[in-house]
Each structure stands twice: as C-alpha cells, then as structure tokens.
Amino acid sequence: TSQSKEFDPLGPLPPGWEKRTDSNGRVYFVNHNTRITQWEDPRSQGQLNE
C-alpha cells in the first residue's frame, strides 16, 4: 500500500495551507484563509531572521 502523503521533515503545514503541484510538476502552496498562492513553503518562512 502506498501512502498519499509523503513524509515531510518540516512537519505538517500550518492550518489552512495546502501543498499542490502544478502541471509542470512544480510544488506550490495555497493559503485557503487568504486565498493566496506562493512558491515558498510557509513552514520555512520566518526562520530566516532567527
């Protein structure tokens, strides 16, 4: 049996976020709370300043 979700070392996405793949196979992220899409992983944002 194959799992639909692959193991992700960053852990789960924040509430309201979804990881998607476009027609070219590039991963992007959707924030359903604000209806915004972005290329950057929301889990890695904010760690750059620490």
Rank of each mutant, 00 (worst) to 15 (best):
S23Y: 00
I36C: 10
Q47F: 06
N49R: 09
D22M: 07
W17T: 01
V27N: 08
K5N: 12
G25N: 15
I36V: 10
V27W: 08
G11L: 07
D41C: 04
W17N: 03
E50K: 15
G16Q: 11
Q3G: 09
N49T: 15
P15F: 08
Q38A: 04
P14S: 05
T21R: 13
V27G: 11
W17L: 04
Q47R: 13
P42A: 00
D8A: 07
S44V: 11
N49L: 11
E40R: 08
I36H: 07
K5E: 01
W39E: 13
P9I: 08
H32R: 12
L48V: 12
N49C: 06
P15D: 05
G16M: 08
V27T: 12
L48Q: 15
P14Q: 13
T1F: 03
F29Y: 12
F29M: 04
N49F: 04
K19A: 05
G11N: 14
I36E: 05
L10D: 13
G46R: 11
P12R: 10
P15Y: 02
N31I: 00
D22H: 09
G25D: 10
Q47T: 14
W39H: 10
P9G: 10
D41N: 04
E40H: 10
E6F: 05
Y28N: 03
F29H: 04
D41W: 03
W17F: 10
Y28D: 04
T37F: 03
E40I: 12
Q45C: 15
F29W: 12
F29S: 02
E40K: 13
Y28G: 06
I36K: 10
K5S: 05
E40A: 08
S4W: 00
R43E: 01
K19V: 00
P15G: 13
V30C: 14
Q3E: 13
G46I: 15
T37S: 13
P14K: 05
Q38K: 02
R35A: 06
Y28V: 06
W39Q: 07
N33A: 08
Q47S: 03
D8Q: 11
N49A: 11
D22R: 05
L48E: 15
W17Q: 03
E18H: 04
F7D: 11
T37C: 07
Y28K: 05
R20C: 14
E18K: 07
G16P: 12
T37G: 03
G46T: 07
D41R: 07
T37N: 09
N33C: 15
W39S: 10
D41T: 03
W39C: 07
G25M: 08
Y28F: 08
Q38V: 05
Q47M: 09
E18N: 03
L10V: 12
E18F: 06
S4F: 15
K19R: 13
F7C: 06
V30F: 11
L13Q: 02
D22E: 05
P9S: 08
D41H: 07
Q45M: 11
E40L: 10
Q45P: 13
P42N: 00
W39K: 06
Q45K: 13
L48D: 15
L10R: 11
D41Q: 07
T21W: 13
S2E: 05
R35E: 08
R26F: 12
P9N: 11
S23Q: 11
R43D: 01
W17S: 02
E40V: 10
R35D: 06
G11S: 04
K5W: 00
F29I: 01
D8Y: 07
T1K: 03
N24T: 05
V27F: 15
S23P: 14
Q3K: 12
R35T: 06
Y28C: 08
K19Q: 08
D41P: 04
R20Q: 13
P14V: 02
K19I: 08
N24W: 07
P12L: 07
S4T: 14
Q3N: 15
D41F: 06
E40M: 08
T34K: 14
W17G: 02
R43Q: 02
E6D: 03
T21Q: 09
R43C: 01
T37V: 04
R35M: 08
T21G: 08
K19S: 12
E18I: 11
F7H: 11
V27Y: 04
R35C: 11
W39P: 08
R20Y: 10
G11K: 03
L13H: 00
S23E: 10
R43T: 06
N24V: 12
R35P: 03
P15T: 13
W17E: 01
D22P: 06
Q38R: 01
P12T: 10
Q45E: 15
L10S: 15
G46H: 04
N33Q: 05
N31H: 01
P15R: 15
T1Q: 00
P42E: 01
E6N: 09
D41Y: 02
L10G: 00
F7T: 13
L48N: 15
R35I: 00
L10E: 12
N33R: 07
L48R: 08
N49G: 11
V30P: 00
G25C: 09
L13C: 00
S23L: 07
S44M: 11
S2D: 15
T21H: 06
I36Q: 07
N31Y: 02
Y28T: 07
V30Q: 07
S4V: 07
G11T: 07
G16T: 08
T21K: 12
N49H: 08
T34W: 15
R35N: 14
F7W: 12
L48P: 12
S2R: 03
R43I: 01
